[in-house]
Amino acid sequence: MDVTAVDRSAVLGDTLLHRAAPASKLVAAGLLLGAVVTMDDPLVAAGLALSLTGAAAAVRLPLRQMLPLAAYPALFALVFAFAAAPGPATGALFVLKAVTAALAVVTLMFSTPYPQVFAPIQRITPTIVGDALLMTYRSLFILADKFADLQRAIRLRAGISARQPVRAARATTRALGGLLLYSFDLSQREYDILRLRGYEGGLRVSVHTSRDRSADGAALAYATLVLGVAVAFRVLPALAGYAWIATLAGALDLTVGLLIGRRTR
């Protein structure tokens, strides 16, 4: 889970999606999650996953970094599908739902700086929760870097080796212990900074507006269309035999998206 790659893309990227207002992207992500909740056909789910990948490729989001992150929940969904699904088609549906939902949120996070995503959450949660959320994300980068350094140092000293699992486990545990001590020192430093700055609760985030209205419209129209398709396949019995069309359309979206992404490069 490379959190720094997500942040780098969200802050430094300049795709069509980056130019849309965070509020529009949050609503679009919500509509896409609505589609994931609604759909109950693996073929429709596959179509949506392909289409979303195509959309991300068309606006030139970093697919190589996004796809592993979106595929990560598939591993856990596979275990859940094996454990609880009543049949193979439902198992496939579980995995595809996990991947599609992950793709939707990962697309949001790769195109929107985290304070902008957290700002609406801050408004509906108690002050301490919203502030701690922002502080967590800040600390996450620092601790992730520190942990990577610690692991590298241990590996260089031959502390992590497959041949000596007990020694490796002991070294990793000490690294985590060291990280815990470091995280406490970090929180102490942050406390000092907050005290110096006269913090009394309530970190403010200035919300970005849209830099391109057409980007907002495109994101919302796409998400609404996807939700419409998912609802249609769920409620209209006449469409039941044509779910393969959704997969085909998704594959087409992916192809077109890849071509557009390559042409605009």
Partner: peptide, 30 residues
Amino acid sequence: LALASREGARVESRRAVPLIGAVSALVLVS
């Protein structure tokens, strides 16, 4: 969360916020 925030308010927020942040980040890294 509402209950926890009320109870958590007994701890000074300047101390609680970075502490929650650091420990949550530690859990996320692990």
